[in-house]
Protein backbone atom coordinates (compact mmCIF):
# COMPACT_ATOMS: atom_id res chain seq x y z
CA UNK A 1 0.00 0.00 0.00
CA UNK A 2 1.57 3.24 -1.07
CA UNK A 3 0.56 6.68 0.00
CA UNK A 4 0.65 9.09 -2.86
CA UNK A 5 -0.14 12.11 -0.74
CA UNK A 6 2.36 14.11 1.18
CA UNK A 7 -0.23 15.16 3.71
CA UNK A 8 -0.22 12.35 6.17
CA UNK A 9 3.27 11.01 5.98
CA UNK A 10 5.01 10.27 9.24
CA UNK A 11 7.76 12.84 8.79
CA UNK A 12 5.22 15.66 8.34
CA UNK A 13 4.25 17.79 11.33
CA UNK A 14 1.74 16.11 13.58
CA UNK A 15 -1.94 16.82 13.31
CA UNK A 16 -4.17 16.95 16.33
CA UNK A 17 -7.82 17.48 17.09
CA UNK A 18 -8.92 19.06 20.34
CA UNK A 19 -12.25 19.58 22.02
CA UNK A 20 -12.22 22.38 24.56
CA UNK A 21 -15.06 22.58 27.03
CA UNK A 22 -17.66 21.35 24.55
CA UNK A 23 -21.26 21.65 25.65
CA UNK A 24 -24.29 20.39 23.84
CA UNK A 25 -27.91 20.88 24.84
CA UNK A 26 -30.75 19.33 22.86
CA UNK A 27 -34.38 19.91 23.77
CA UNK A 28 -33.69 20.92 27.35
CA UNK A 29 -31.35 18.00 27.92
CA UNK A 30 -27.70 18.52 28.57
CA UNK A 31 -26.05 15.82 26.48
CA UNK A 32 -22.56 16.68 27.55
CA UNK A 33 -21.05 19.58 29.36
CA UNK A 34 -17.43 20.66 29.54
CA UNK A 35 -16.13 17.83 27.38
CA UNK A 36 -12.38 17.94 26.79
CA UNK A 37 -10.12 15.64 24.83
CA UNK A 38 -7.22 15.71 22.47
CA UNK A 39 -6.13 13.12 19.96
CA UNK A 40 -3.14 13.29 17.70
CA UNK A 41 -1.75 11.43 14.72
CA UNK A 42 -1.78 7.65 14.98
CA UNK A 43 -4.58 7.69 17.53
CA UNK A 44 -8.12 6.36 17.47
CA UNK A 45 -10.89 7.86 19.59
CA UNK A 46 -13.79 5.53 20.28
CA UNK A 47 -16.89 7.30 21.55
CA UNK A 48 -19.21 5.08 23.53
CA UNK A 49 -22.56 5.65 25.13
CA UNK A 50 -26.19 4.63 25.20
CA UNK A 51 -28.65 5.59 22.50
CA UNK A 52 -29.47 9.26 22.81
CA UNK A 53 -26.34 10.07 24.75
CA UNK A 54 -25.18 12.50 22.09
CA UNK A 55 -22.67 10.48 20.12
CA UNK A 56 -23.92 11.61 16.74
CA UNK A 57 -24.30 15.20 17.96
CA UNK A 58 -20.71 15.15 19.13
CA UNK A 59 -19.45 13.80 15.81
CA UNK A 60 -21.38 16.43 13.87
CA UNK A 61 -19.95 19.15 16.07
CA UNK A 62 -16.46 17.76 15.49
CA UNK A 63 -17.11 17.92 11.74
CA UNK A 64 -18.30 21.50 11.97
CA UNK A 65 -21.78 20.49 10.85
CA UNK A 66 -23.52 20.74 14.20
CA UNK A 67 -23.68 23.73 16.48
CA UNK A 68 -22.30 23.41 19.96
CA UNK A 69 -23.80 25.35 22.84
CA UNK A 70 -20.44 26.26 24.23
CA UNK A 71 -16.77 25.48 23.84
CA UNK A 72 -14.70 25.01 20.77
CA UNK A 73 -13.22 22.40 18.48
CA UNK A 74 -9.66 23.01 17.38
CA UNK A 75 -7.62 21.47 14.60
CA UNK A 76 -3.89 21.87 15.12
CA UNK A 77 -4.59 24.62 17.63
CA UNK A 78 -6.95 26.67 15.46
CA UNK A 79 -10.70 26.88 15.74
CA UNK A 80 -12.31 24.79 12.98
CA UNK A 81 -14.86 27.51 12.45
CA UNK A 82 -12.10 29.87 11.43
CA UNK A 83 -10.33 27.25 9.32
CA UNK A 84 -13.44 26.35 7.34
CA UNK A 85 -12.44 24.62 4.12
CA UNK A 86 -8.87 24.47 5.43
CA UNK A 87 -10.15 21.98 8.00
CA UNK A 88 -12.53 20.16 5.70
CA UNK A 89 -9.74 19.30 3.27
CA UNK A 90 -8.27 17.06 5.97
CA UNK A 91 -11.58 15.58 7.03
CA UNK A 92 -13.67 12.71 5.77
CA UNK A 93 -17.01 11.94 7.37
CA UNK A 94 -19.26 8.95 7.07
CA UNK A 95 -22.52 9.62 8.86
CA UNK A 96 -25.83 7.90 9.44
CA UNK A 97 -26.80 8.64 5.89
CA UNK A 98 -23.96 7.31 3.84
CA UNK A 99 -23.98 10.00 1.17
CA UNK A 100 -24.15 7.41 -1.60
CA UNK A 101 -26.27 8.31 -4.61
CA UNK A 102 -28.53 5.34 -5.33
CA UNK A 103 -28.88 6.17 -9.02
CA UNK A 104 -25.15 6.37 -9.65
CA UNK A 105 -22.87 3.42 -10.19
CA UNK A 106 -20.19 2.49 -7.69
CA UNK A 107 -17.54 3.99 -9.93
CA UNK A 108 -19.44 7.26 -10.45
CA UNK A 109 -19.94 7.60 -6.70
CA UNK A 110 -16.24 7.27 -6.06
CA UNK A 111 -15.31 9.64 -8.89
CA UNK A 112 -17.60 12.24 -7.37
CA UNK A 113 -15.99 11.77 -3.96
CA UNK A 114 -12.57 12.31 -5.53
CA UNK A 115 -13.74 15.45 -7.28
CA UNK A 116 -15.02 16.91 -4.01
CA UNK A 117 -11.76 16.25 -2.20
CA UNK A 118 -8.27 15.71 -3.49
CA UNK A 119 -7.76 12.25 -4.88
CA UNK A 120 -5.02 10.44 -3.08
CA UNK A 121 -4.05 7.30 -1.26
CA UNK A 122 -5.35 4.39 -3.29
CA UNK A 123 -6.67 4.22 -6.80
CA UNK A 124 -10.33 3.37 -7.11
CA UNK A 125 -9.51 -0.19 -8.20
CA UNK A 126 -7.30 -0.77 -5.19
CA UNK A 127 -9.90 0.68 -2.84
CA UNK A 128 -12.67 -1.52 -4.25
CA UNK A 129 -10.46 -4.53 -3.74
CA UNK A 130 -9.81 -3.57 -0.13
CA UNK A 131 -13.51 -3.27 0.71
CA UNK A 132 -14.42 -6.36 -1.30
CA UNK A 133 -16.48 -4.62 -3.94
CA UNK A 134 -14.25 -5.61 -6.81
CA UNK A 135 -16.40 -6.41 -9.84
CA UNK A 136 -19.26 -4.12 -8.83
CA UNK A 137 -17.90 -0.98 -10.53
CA UNK A 138 -20.76 -0.53 -12.94
CA UNK A 139 -23.58 -1.58 -10.65
CA UNK A 140 -25.90 1.19 -9.55
CA UNK A 141 -25.83 1.68 -5.81
CA UNK A 142 -29.50 0.87 -5.31
CA UNK A 143 -28.77 -2.67 -6.41
CA UNK A 144 -26.23 -3.14 -3.62
CA UNK A 145 -27.14 -4.58 -0.24
CA UNK A 146 -27.09 -2.34 2.82
CA UNK A 147 -23.78 -3.79 3.94
CA UNK A 148 -22.26 -3.31 0.52
CA UNK A 149 -23.39 0.31 0.44
CA UNK A 150 -21.71 0.80 3.76
CA UNK A 151 -18.52 -0.66 2.31
CA UNK A 152 -18.83 1.69 -0.62
CA UNK A 153 -19.10 4.63 1.78
CA UNK A 154 -15.94 3.43 3.48
CA UNK A 155 -14.19 3.01 0.14
CA UNK A 156 -14.73 6.73 -0.25
CA UNK A 157 -12.36 7.24 2.66
CA UNK A 158 -9.66 5.32 0.85
CA UNK A 159 -9.83 7.08 -2.51
CA UNK A 160 -9.65 10.57 -1.06
CA UNK A 161 -6.81 12.20 0.71
CA UNK A 162 -7.93 12.92 4.27
CA UNK A 163 -5.99 12.23 7.42
CA UNK A 164 -8.92 12.68 9.84
CA UNK A 165 -11.71 10.15 9.57
CA UNK A 166 -14.91 10.77 11.50
CA UNK A 167 -17.18 7.74 11.35
CA UNK A 168 -20.65 7.35 12.79
CA UNK A 169 -21.39 3.65 13.43
CA UNK A 170 -19.28 2.51 10.48
CA UNK A 171 -19.96 -1.17 11.13
CA UNK A 172 -23.74 -1.01 10.84
CA UNK A 173 -25.08 -3.73 8.54
CA UNK A 174 -21.63 -5.12 7.89
CA UNK A 175 -20.77 -8.79 8.25
CA UNK A 176 -17.97 -10.11 10.47
CA UNK A 177 -15.54 -10.29 7.61
CA UNK A 178 -16.27 -6.72 6.60
CA UNK A 179 -15.72 -5.51 10.15
CA UNK A 180 -12.39 -7.29 10.36
CA UNK A 181 -11.35 -5.87 6.98
CA UNK A 182 -12.23 -2.41 8.06
CA UNK A 183 -10.48 -2.69 11.41
CA UNK A 184 -7.36 -3.54 9.46
CA UNK A 185 -7.85 -0.46 7.30
CA UNK A 186 -8.17 1.72 10.40
CA UNK A 187 -4.96 0.25 11.76
CA UNK A 188 -3.14 0.98 8.49
CA UNK A 189 -4.53 4.50 8.39
CA UNK A 190 -3.34 5.31 11.89
CA UNK A 191 -0.02 3.62 11.27
CA UNK A 192 0.54 6.16 8.50
CA UNK A 193 -0.18 9.05 10.79
CA UNK A 194 -3.94 9.32 10.38
CA UNK A 195 -6.52 10.11 13.04
CA UNK A 196 -9.82 8.30 13.48
CA UNK A 197 -12.83 9.30 15.57
CA UNK A 198 -15.66 6.83 15.60
CA UNK A 199 -18.71 5.63 17.45
CA UNK A 200 -19.51 1.97 17.56
CA UNK A 201 -21.53 -0.58 19.44
CA UNK A 202 -18.95 -3.17 18.56
CA UNK A 203 -15.75 -3.53 20.44
CA UNK A 204 -12.89 -2.34 18.31
CA UNK A 205 -10.07 -4.72 17.53
CA UNK A 206 -7.27 -2.69 16.09
CA UNK A 207 -3.93 -4.29 16.67
CA UNK A 208 -1.22 -1.80 17.18
CA UNK A 209 -3.47 1.27 17.15
CA UNK A 210 -3.56 3.60 20.13
CA UNK A 211 -7.26 3.58 21.03
CA UNK A 212 -8.68 6.11 23.46
CA UNK A 213 -12.21 5.84 24.77
CA UNK A 214 -14.80 8.36 25.88
CA UNK A 215 -18.04 7.27 27.48
CA UNK A 216 -20.82 9.82 27.14
CA UNK A 217 -23.40 8.11 29.36
Amino acid sequence: MTFSSADCEPDKPEYYLEACDLTCVRDDQVLFDGLNFRIGSKQVLLIEGKNGSGKTSLLRILCGLGLQDGGEVKWCGESIERLGAGYHQHLAYVGHHDGIKRDLTVLENLHMAQALDQPGRLTIDQALEKVNLWGYEDVQAHALSAGQRRRLALARLLVTDNCLWILDEPFTAMDKEGIADFERLIATHTAHGGLVVLTSHHSLNCDGADVQRIDLS
Binding site: A85, H88, G95, G99, I100, K101, L116
Partner: peptide
Amino acid sequence: EDGSLEQLLLSAHPVSVL
Protein backbone atom coordinates in the same frame (compact mmCIF):
# COMPACT_ATOMS: atom_id res chain seq x y z
CA GLU B 1 -32.10 12.73 2.35
CA ASP B 2 -29.20 10.47 1.41
CA GLY B 3 -26.48 12.47 3.14
CA SER B 4 -24.76 13.75 -0.02
CA LEU B 5 -25.41 17.29 1.13
CA GLU B 6 -23.26 16.73 4.23
CA GLN B 7 -20.49 15.52 1.95
CA LEU B 8 -20.80 18.67 -0.18
CA LEU B 9 -20.55 20.89 2.89
CA LEU B 10 -17.50 18.98 4.11
CA SER B 11 -15.66 19.10 0.81
CA ALA B 12 -12.49 21.08 0.41
CA HIS B 13 -14.13 23.47 -2.08
CA PRO B 14 -16.18 26.61 -1.46
CA VAL B 15 -19.76 25.55 -0.93
CA SER B 16 -21.03 28.52 -2.94
CA VAL B 17 -19.36 27.12 -6.07
CA LEU B 18 -20.95 23.73 -5.49
